[in-house]
């Protein structure tokens, strides 16, 4: 259990002729809140999809807790995609049973309590819920698992500030302290206060991986400001953080 939770070596992903990720070497330990930051199209979602096994690497290797993503890791990695995955026919109750049936680490009681606090009834049809409620339900389900890794892809994009607070609080109060939470976002200001480390992605490459406190101490400004300077300076890329 000493090895890093996430280990990427020379990891790359190509889609037909587009390089989505190039030569990613990244190690992330346990019990950390990590921000995966980068502008749109920088490869955040691709990296997360590789980690949860929705994509296969084109180059290099990736292990989660020592395993290549597969059945073994999927049982212990909680993934929140950047879209709705609900089947039309399901009621909340069906979805809770689905999670209970397939994920050994799912805490149904916890999920039911979270639903109750969101005023979601077990008999409610998911199809007829508002977009915001669906997002909160999806997050509640992801956070009701006692996983060793939570992969949250853009959990706060497209929701109002009150919902944003709810989401961040849900993440902070529910994750298992031994676990690592990887949050991808381009809304850094909102998550900055909760992060331990940040990984900067730019044009499919990791251009920085540091503790948030170190960045603040060295640069004398917030990670949000560092990010803005980094990616505003040169739209073509090149003169960024590491350079």
């Amino acid at each position: 259990m000493n090895q890093d939770l996430i280990a990427c070596q020379g990891l790359g992903k190509t889609f037909s002729h587009t390089k989505a990720l190039t030569d990613v070497n990244l190690n992330i330990g346990r019990g950390k809140l990590v921000g995966l930051l980068g502008p749109n199209g920088s490869g955040k979602t691709t990296l997360i999809k590789l980690m949860c096994g929705l994509l296969q690497p084109s180059f290099g290797s990736l292990t989660i807790n020592g395993y290549t993503p597969g059945v073994e890791t999927k049982a212990h990695v909680s993934y929140l995609p950047d879209r709705m995955y609900f089947a039309d026919w399901m009621k909340t109750r069906d979805l809770l049973s689905f999670f209970q049936d397939f994920y050994p680490d799912f805490d149904r009681k916890k999920a039911e309590d979270m639903c109750a606090s969101l005023k979601i009834q077990p008999g409610d049809r998911i199809k007829s819920m508002s977009k915001g409620t669906k997002e909160k339900l999806q997050l509640s389900l992801a956070m009701s698992r006692q996983s060793y890794l939570y992969l949250l892809d853009e959990p706060i994009a497209g929701v109002d500030p009150a919902a944003r607070d709810f989401i961040l609080n849900t993440i902070l109060t529910n994750y298992n302290p031994e676990a690592t939470v990887l949050i991808s976002t381009h809304l850094i200001g909102d998550v900055e206060r909760v992060l331990d480390e940040v990984v900067f992605l730019h044009q499919g490459r990791v251009v920085g991986h540091e503790a948030v406190d170190d960045i603040r101490a060295r640069e004398g400004k917030s990670v949000d400001d560092v990010f803005r300077d980094m990616f505003r300076a040169n739209p073509q890329g090149g003169d960024y953080y590491a350079g």
Partner: peptide, 16 residues
């Protein structure tokens, strides 16, 4: 159920 959005759930549950 598999190739659209629902696939995001189906391919991340621990089954082959």
């Amino acid at each position: 159920g598999l190739l659209k959005d629902e696939g995001y759930l189906m391919f991340t549950i621990p089954v082959k």
